[in-house]
């Protein structure tokens, strides 16, 4: 177990290191000089040079990379070119929206997908199974931002149950936050829940055809008991893999959904930063997203070991 965890952890660190190099150099090789963008076209050459020195842009690339990474490790994400404020603070403000949204959506996904997938698998081939699977086909195919727009039309504009957009802020209380995050979370979760329910069902069906299920039935377990006591935990491994991947889709999908609901999350930040060519912000947000994905994958791998004694032994 220790060995397994340590090797996974080393691989996490290595992935992060490589990812940071990729991100930094991908964005650094770009054409365009941030200093001249910040000062506008009419900037004096000496002011420009002063700003470049202040931003550290006159340093060699490797030195700037090292400075950036050292900063990241200390929680210093640099200074935004356009706002002249610390990027870290900007990100923290936006994360207060984006992270709860992603987690809320992930929670909904799991809460919807597990019962549906298990129910369909236990009634394989029945009318209920076929119709539920038909519905998940629709759920997989629906573009989440379009679904979000339709929900705005129905629930916010016509029924007026929810606000059409904007974020009340955490100061307004949990209820207000839930009110502004529920539609976006549902829009994000529905397609992912459809995918996960399908994965859950097929993983369960695969497991139910294994030899050890027959052994369990020969002991006197009913189909139901065999499913709950023996098949479910074995089916969990592919399901965990998908949940891990879905988290990254939810984070990334959140960027788009935030646009539909005018939520002040990372998505808005990144689009503002792109149009303003505020590269420090783009770099940092991308790094943060990638870090989140890699971290979640690490957690999923630990979860494998919790489920499977064969991995624990390593």
């Amino acid at each position: 177990m220790l060995r397994y965890t340590l090797t996974r952890f080393l691989s996490l660190c290595l992935s992060l290191a490589v990812a940071s190099v990729v991100i930094f150099f991908a964005i650094e090789v770009l054409p365009g000089d941030p200093a001249s963008i910040m000062l506008g076209v009419n900037a004096q050459p000496d002011t420009l040079a002063a700003l470049r020195a202040e931003l550290g842009l006159d340093q060699p690339m490797v030195a700037r990379y090292l400075a950036w990474v050292t900063g990241l490790l200390q929680g210093d994400f640099g200074i935004s070119y356009t706002y002249r404020t610390p990027v870290a603070q900007m990100i923290v403000d936006r994360l207060a929206v984006s992270l709860p949204l992603a987690l809320y959506a992930l929670g909904l996904t799991v809460v919807i997908a597990f019962p549906v997938g298990i129910w369909a698998a236990s009634r394989r081939g029945s009318v209920g199974d076929v119709s539920i699977m038909g519905l998940t086909q629709l759920g997989v195919a629906i573009p989440n931002f379009w679904f979000a727009m339709l929900m705005v039309l129905v629930f916010a504009i016509n029924l007026q149950w929810f606000s059409a957009g904007g974020f009340a802020g955490w100061d307004a209380g949990l209820f207000a936050v839930l009110k502004s995050l529920t539609l976006p979370a549902v829009a994000l979760a529905l397609p992912q829940a459809s995918i996960l329910a399908r994965v859950m069902r097929s993983a369960l069906l695969d497991t139910l055809s294994e030899d050890f299920i027959r052994t369990a039935r020969a002991k006197g377990l009913s189909r139901r008991q065999a499913l709950w006591r023996h098949a479910l935990r074995n089916a969990l491994i592919p399901v965990l893999t998908i949940i891990g991947m879905q988290f990254s889709f939810l984070l990334a999908g959140g960027i788009i959904i935030e646009n539909v609901f005018y939520l002040p999350g990372l998505g808005r930040l990144i689009f503002q930063a792109i149009s303003a060519r505020d590269l420090v912000v783009v770099e940092s947000v991308v790094m943060l997203l990638v870090f989140a994905v890699i971290l979640v994958n690490f957690l999923v791998e630990l979860a494998y070991a919790a489920v499977d004694p064969r991995l624990r032994a390593r």
């Binding site: 770009l30 984070l251 788009i256 060519r277 590269l279 994905v293």
Partner: peptide, 23 residues
């Protein structure tokens, strides 16, 4: 395979953001 895992850590939207920021 590790390279694959690494690319998986960049959802296509994130890659698009990076490319757009560049070009």
């Amino acid at each position: 395979m590790r390279g694959n895992d690494l690319v998986f850590a960049f959802p296509s939207l994130v890659i698009a953001v990076m490319i757009t920021a560049a070009f």
